[in-house]
Nucleic acid binder design. Structure first.
Length: 408
DNA sequence: TCTGGGGTCCTGCGGCTG
DNA sequence: TCTGCAGCCGCAGGACCC
């Protein structure tokens, strides 16, 4: 193992890099507002029901972590400065960072806005050994974007990912092929990809606390406790086996939108209005990606946090908000919720994606042969030019004499 | 402590079909 | 005609990731 400092580390067999931006959202905010540098900055937490999306290391020193409810973060770090997220800005910075990766190799697989796998096998002759490429990337990101990243270098994706996490922030860690098992086996089971709270509890029931414990457990025992797929998955990872390749273009499988209300809602008409809004966002994303979808799902989270999903597969793929909304409403009404049940979240998601160009979508709904797709495409063009508030369904216009529900 | 929003993958069950 | 079976698909829910 090596932190890849001044001396050249042993990077034998290491052609996978995992690059992970450090406290990405918070770092971007500080880049935009340098007066925040060195302060405990927390991104997220607006609207009363938020969680922490990103926190600077100054805030983390107080115990603040991602996904933590903001109320708790506030108590842990009363001096923290809360900043609302600017998702478009983060997406733009992410695009530029990914472009830097693209100058190194075309084999770039983004995992999220702030991290990606790179297979640098084809860049060794041009740019040098993997550790040197990692140093080059870190310098380019810092120089061009003014933010830092950490890089794990390893023979497999999984080990590279753990390595980048273990050298944060602003670090570089190389795990050579010969050092993989020694590196892995000392880690707690929670370090493995796919082990969260529930799986961690299941492993604890078997008395397994470290990756070495898993590696020394019979496969059958793991499969009995966790299921065939997950048991095999964890056994392979614990043995250092990970055959997954870096795949630059992974097609999306579902697209959706969801929203948690500032206060629980029990009025079915208001809930349907939210379904209309979310259907519009989902359809817009579908069209932007050139997709149509066959299956519509709704997600309903009660005030008690119990979550119910309902889905229906359509006869034809669609990218029309009106059709998605009609299906979402039908699913909501047939979900069997108690009358007046208060919801804290609703979501709309579509799956079974196909290319819109090839989709034999049906344009009509309720026997009206109107070109809804064309109408919605026209709205897309207007909103891309004048903003999302320029045009919206009549039912979403906040006016005292607003038309009846269902108007579009 | 009081839990966002975007996703992926897996499991189990029931219905349909050959 | 009936029954059993296997395979596939749709659906619901859960766990997990960033």
């Amino acid at each position: 193992m090596s932190t890849g400092g001044s001396a050249d580390p042993d990077d034998t067999g290491c052609h996978i890099l995992h690059v992970d931006m450090d406290a990405f959202y918070a770092s971007v905010e500080i880049r935009e507002r340098p007066e925040l540098a060195g302060l405990p900055v927390i991104v997220g937490g607006t609207g009363g029901r938020g969680v922490v999306l990103s926190a600077t290391y100054e805030a983390r020193a107080f115990g603040v972590r991602s996904a933590m409810p903001v109320g708790r973060a506030q108590r842990l770090c009363p001096r923290a400065i809360f900043v609302p997220p600017s998702r478009r800005l983060y997406a733009a910075v992410s695009k530029e960072v990914m472009a830097i990766f693209g100058t190194v190799t075309p084999e770039v697989e983004p995992l999220a806005l702030d991290e990606a796998f790179l297979d640098v096998s084809g860049a060794l002759r041009r740019l040098g050994p993997p550790a040197a490429i990692a140093r080059h990337i870190r310098a380019e990101v810092a120089g061009q974007q003014g933010i830092t990243c950490s890089v794990g270098v390893a023979p497999t994706k999984f080990v590279a990912k753990i390595a980048s996490a273990r050298c944060k922030p602003d670090g570089l860690l190389v795990v050579p092929r010969a050092g993989v098992l020694g590196f892995l086996h000392a880690l707690p089971v929670s370090a493995l990809w796919g082990v969260g709270e529930r799986t961690g509890e299941a492993l604890a029931r078997l008395g397994l606390r470290t990756v070495a414990d898993i590696a020394h457990t019979p496969l059958a025992a793991l499969q009995h406790e966790l299921g065939v797929a997950q048991g095999s998955h964890l056994a392979a990872l614990a043995a250092g086996r990970d055959e997954r390749r870096v795949t630059p273009h992974t097609p999306e499988k579902s697209i959706g939108a969801e929203e948690t209300f500032a206060a629980d809602i029990d009025d079915p008409e208001r809930i349907k209005r939210e379904l209309l809004r979310l259907s519009g966002r989902t359809a817009h994303s579908l069209r932007a990606g050139g997709y149509a979808a066959r299956t519509v799902s709704v997600k309903l989270r009660l005030a008690s946090f119990k979550t119910t999903t309902r889905s229906r597969t359509l006869a034809y793929p669609t990218d029309v908000a009106r059709e998605i909304y009609a299906t979402a409403c039908a699913l909501y009404e047939s979900a069997g919720l108690d009358r007046g049940a208060a919801l804290r979240l609703v979501g709309v998601r579509v799956s079974g994606l196909v290319a819109a160009a090839g989709a034999n979508a049906q344009l009509t709904l309720d026997d009206r042969p109107v070109g809804w797709r064309e109408a919605e495409r026209a709205v897309d063009q207007i909103t891309s030019r004048f903003g999302s508030s320029a045009v919206r369904p009549a039912a979403l216009v906040e006016e005292p004499d607003r038309p009846a529900e269902g108007a579009f």
